[in-house]
Amino acid sequence: MIRLIVSFFVFIVDVVYGNRSYARFYVLETIARVPYFSYLSVLHLYETLGFWRRADLLKVHFAETWNELHHLLIMESLGGNRYWGDRFLAQHVAVAYYWVVVLLYVLSPMYAYYLMELIENHAYHTYDDYLNAHAAALKTQPAPQVAIEYYRDGDLYMFEEVQTTTGGTFRHPQVDNLYDVFLNIREDECAHVKTMEVLQEPDARQSFYSPHTVFTAAKALPIDAEL
């Protein structure tokens, strides 16, 4: 079932859009960010009903939506949403996809995270292929301002929060041209894959901490002592 959903998603993005790269990426980012909305909706419902509360999960999933939003804004700045048909398709698939993931997350968070791992892994390879095919041309084009603000000049807290496996430091990349932008987006997708893998662990709801929680604790004292 999970692979069937992913295959449908891949069909829309890869087969329907072919070589229309920016429109393809626009659709990819419109749809791919939806599961994070679904996770947040269910988590807020559980909190409202008094079932359980995990602030770190809420924080990281919101940071992931913020990250995907900026991917989408970048694609819009490049003209990916120029045509009404592309917007119509992406937005309507996204609405249906939202409810599918809500139901899946209620029934099995592990499978909901596995679904997103597959989607983000596909996104990583999609951007990797694009970078390999168009590196020279991308390096001659300027980075959109929205990318510069998100990756370099703005408040980097939300960007850092998607970097689950930081190794004690946060990634602060270059944004000198359009190649750098797509490289950063590709690495973001890799970070999402790693997060989804961690969240599939049996005790993830109890053991998962956000990057800043881990980083702050590591600076203060051994993490086991504080957490």
Rank of each mutant, 00 (worst) to 15 (best):
Met1Trp: 05
Ile2Trp: 03
Ile2Gln: 09
Arg3Glu: 03
Ile5Pro: 00
Phe8Cys: 02
Phe8Gln: 03
Ile12Lys: 08
Val13Asn: 02
Asp14Cys: 10
Val15Cys: 14
Asn19Gly: 01
Arg20Met: 01
Ser21Ile: 09
Arg24Asp: 00
Arg24Phe: 00
Tyr26Thr: 12
Val27Leu: 04
Val27Tyr: 09
Ala32Gly: 01
Arg33Cys: 00
Val34Glu: 05
Phe37Ala: 04
Ser38Ile: 09
Tyr39Val: 07
Tyr39Asn: 05
Leu40Gly: 07
His44Arg: 15
His44Cys: 08
Thr48Glu: 11
Leu49Glu: 15
Leu49Asn: 11
Gly50Asn: 10
Gly50Phe: 02
Arg53Ile: 10
Arg54Glu: 05
Arg54Ala: 11
Asp56His: 08
Val60Tyr: 09
His61Lys: 05
Phe62Met: 13
Glu64Cys: 12
Thr65Ser: 12
Trp66Ala: 14
Asn67Pro: 03
Glu68Leu: 09
Leu73Asp: 06
Leu73Thr: 01
Met75Glu: 14
Glu76Ala: 14
Ser77Gly: 04
Leu78Lys: 01
Leu78Trp: 05
Gly79His: 04
Gly80Gln: 03
Arg82Gln: 10
Trp84Pro: 00
Leu89Trp: 02
Ala90Ile: 11
His92Gln: 15
Val93Asn: 03
Ala94Gln: 06
Val95Phe: 13
Ala96Gln: 15
Ala96Trp: 12
Trp99Asp: 09
Trp99Ser: 07
Val100Ile: 15
Val100Asp: 07
Val102Ala: 10
Val102Leu: 07
Leu104Lys: 03
Leu104Ser: 10
Leu104Gln: 10
Leu107Met: 13
Ser108Glu: 04
Ser108Val: 05
Met110Asn: 11
Tyr113Val: 03
Tyr114Glu: 12
Leu118Ala: 09
Leu118Arg: 02
Glu120Phe: 08
His122Pro: 04
Ala123Gln: 12
Tyr124Leu: 08
Thr126Leu: 07
Tyr127Cys: 01
Tyr127Pro: 00
Leu131Ile: 08
Asn132Ile: 04
Ala135Ile: 00
Ala136Tyr: 06
Ala136Thr: 09
Ala137His: 01
Thr140Val: 04
Gln141His: 06
Ala143Phe: 10
Ala143Arg: 02
Gln145Arg: 10
Val146Lys: 03
Glu149Val: 14
Glu149Pro: 04
Glu149Tyr: 05
Asp153Glu: 12
Leu156Met: 11
Met158Asn: 03
Phe159Trp: 15
Glu160Gln: 13
Val162Arg: 02
Gln163Tyr: 00
Thr166Cys: 03
Gly167Arg: 07
Gly167Ala: 06
Gly168Ser: 06
Phe170His: 00
Arg171Ile: 05
Arg171Val: 10
His172Val: 14
Gln174Arg: 15
Val175Arg: 13
Asp176Tyr: 00
Asp176Gly: 12
Asn177Thr: 00
Asn177Pro: 08
Asp180Ile: 04
Val181Glu: 13
Phe182Leu: 02
Leu183Gln: 12
Asp188Arg: 08
Asp188Met: 08
Cys190Ile: 13
Ala191Trp: 14
His192Ala: 13
Val193Met: 05
Lys194Arg: 12
Lys194Val: 10
Thr195Ala: 09
Met196Arg: 08
Gln200Asp: 00
Glu201Phe: 07
Pro202His: 08
Arg205His: 10
Phe208Gly: 04
Phe208Asn: 06
Ser210Val: 05
Pro211Tyr: 03
Pro211Asp: 01
Thr213Trp: 11
Val214Ser: 03
Val214Pro: 02
Phe215Tyr: 13
Ala218Arg: 10
Pro222Val: 09
Pro222His: 06
Ile223Trp: 13
Ile223Val: 15
Leu227Pro: 01
Leu227Phe: 15
